[in-house]
Amino acid sequence: MRRVCDLCGCSEAVVTSSYGKAMCKDCLERSIIRRSFAELRTGISEGDLVVVALSGGKDSSLALWCIYKYRELSSVEFALKAVTIDEGSPYRRHAIEAARSLCKELEVEHVLVNMRDYQGISVSDLLRLEHLPNKRSMCTYCGVLRRQTLNIVARKLGANKVVTGHNLDDIIQTFFMNMVRGDVNALARFLSRATPIRELIPRVRPLLMIREKEIAAFVAAKGITAHFGKCPMVRGMRIRMRRALDELEVSSVGFKSKILPNMIKILDKARSDLSMRLNLHVCERCGEPSAERICKACQLKMELRGLI
């Protein structure tokens, strides 16, 4: 047998945990269930209609698997649907196929929507442009328009909770990016459980405490249907932030897991001062949640006027 699990001492290990321990598939499964159920217990209530934002990638596929297990193992009864947004990007084909297969395997209703039907724009439209306006990156359009589409679709389906696959790495990167940009509005909303306006459906993040590498190892070891490819168009500050945080994790083991509770503590302490910034409005043009008078999605579409 190869490297044996440090926890049970009887099976082959599949990953090194945040605390430097080698873990087997079963011990990792118990640990993932413990951490994700803690989030789901506070986020999901009896009678909820929960929509999982399922891209077909490893993170959202595991998020769906976790909530599926939660429904099976807990006494809480709620309805579950998965929504996949086809942004019209050529690289997404395999992931969408994986999303479809996973829903079929778990017998979860799958709703596939075209972003162009809701936003009038797709990633393939943007790819045809020589340059994007104001030196913006593709991720800005893709992210902003996808998030808004998800909110519209979830509301249309009658959902009152949206589950996303954001993991520990994503959350820490976003926190530091907001710090670097000095984005106080975003920090005020960050990880807040408050729902400032009814148009915005509350988010639940079962993978909040789980490192991306543990997710990848578990999805591979357990054989959960998911696509492992990364978007080749990703660029900008998130990449640099990822690299810096991964270097910190390698040189000081457990960095990511240790920093998250501290981030939450600081934000909770600062929340009273930040609360005046928590007020979301609805966009004057489209009626969707927005931190400003006109939402980001409308701003981006106005910039593209005449180009597409």
Partner: peptide
């Protein structure tokens, strides 16, 4: 993610 002999493995394998 290192896959060695078709299985994911820990860093110190």
């Amino acid at each position: 993610l290192p896959i060695i002999e078709r299985k994911p493995r820990p860093d110190d394998c």
